[in-house]
Computed example of a mutant assay.
Amino acid sequence: MKEILEQKKMNFSDLKKLLEEKGVKVNNSQLSLYANGKRKPRDKKIWIEIAEVLQVDLQEIIIDINSYLVIMDEISENTAEKKDKTENEYFLF
């Protein structure tokens, strides 16, 4: 993540502001810990928000492959749940 921020001439404060605009509350020290792989966000969706704000693929900002796979699994589960819910609501009418 640090390299991407450098390429985009951004710092953690810039990233924090962009995330806050999307309703994600983090501080610079949290972002630094995430970038260095010393801490993982409790809410894995933060990674998705960071990738969107930086306009990069998710795997470009996640160092640990296992963390990436867990997040992708959660995304696919959430997508399947939403699809099931939508289909169930359709059949109720």
Rank of each mutant, 00 (worst) to 15 (best):
M10R: 01
S13N: 05
R42V: 02
E6I: 09
N78C: 10
G23Y: 09
I75S: 12
A80Q: 07
Y68V: 08
T86F: 12
V70F: 14
L18W: 05
V70Q: 14
K17I: 03
N11D: 10
E52Y: 10
E3L: 01
K40E: 15
M1I: 02
F91H: 05
G37R: 05
I71L: 15
G23Q: 00
I71S: 09
A80F: 14
E89M: 11
I46P: 02
I65F: 15
I48M: 13
S76T: 08
N88K: 08
K45T: 03
Y34E: 06
Q7Y: 03
K25A: 08
S29Q: 08
D43F: 12
S29M: 10
N28P: 03
F12M: 03
V26A: 07
A51E: 00
K85A: 07
F12H: 04
L15V: 02
K22F: 11
K45R: 11
F91I: 09
I75H: 15
I4E: 00
I61Y: 10
N88D: 13
E89R: 07
G37T: 00
K9S: 11
K9P: 00
Y34P: 01
S67F: 15
I4Y: 00
L18G: 01
V70D: 14
V70N: 12
L31E: 03
E81N: 01
E89N: 10
R39A: 14
K45N: 14
L31G: 00
S32T: 00
F12R: 05
E77I: 09
K9F: 15
E87K: 13
E52L: 12
I50A: 06
V70A: 07
